[in-house]
């Protein structure tokens, strides 16, 4: 069933891609092929392979149970928050929080996670910023 859904989604993607390709505005100065042709070839391959996937599905993959799925989703949300907050609160604080969260969710105890999280953050800061001189996000506190 997963592969059938996947194939249908792929087909819709291919159709969308083809429509977007037709919508490309051609410039008056164009080569013999133009900017549309290759994307249309790709859309064809994408569509055909999607149809084959939908018609000849593989055995069902093992999807995680709902709580595990929620786990992955929560991690995604944390990572997006991390990406958005990084320039606001600075590298060290943001990374400490994100690393703590991930360590905790991967099965460490709460206190151990906080220690690992802060350790990871400071470790990366020392190695990459102080030793290697990489510029990391600077927060209001300067680190």
């Amino acid at each position: 069933m997963s592969d059938r859904i996947f194939g249908v989604v792929g087909l819709l993607l291919a159709i969308g891609f083809a429509l977007a390709a037709f919508a490309i505005e051609e410039s008056f100065l164009s080569d013999a092929v133009g900017p549309k042709a290759f994307p249309l070839i790709i859309a064809t391959v994408l569509g055909l392979s999607s149809i084959v996937i939908a018609l000849k599905p593989d055995p069902e993959p093992e999807w995680p149970a709902l709580p595990r799925l929620a786990e992955v989703l929560a991690a995604v949300v944390v990572m997006i928050l991390y990406a958005e907050l990084l320039p606001e609160i600075g590298f060290v604080i943001a990374t400490a929080f994100a690393a703590t969260y991930l360590t905790w969710r991967l099965g460490s105890g709460l206190i151990a996670s906080v220690v690992t999280g802060i350790g990871t953050s400071l470790g990366i800061y020392v190695i990459f910023h102080m030793v290697l001189g990489l510029s990391l996000a600077r927060g209001p506190l300067g680190f």
Partner: peptide, 21 residues
Amino acid sequence: PRILMPVVAMVSFVGIYGISG
């Protein structure tokens, strides 16, 4: 892995942020 994987994730973020900021 519970210690290693967060490090992997954070180093990935550092690298990409370093390129484009």
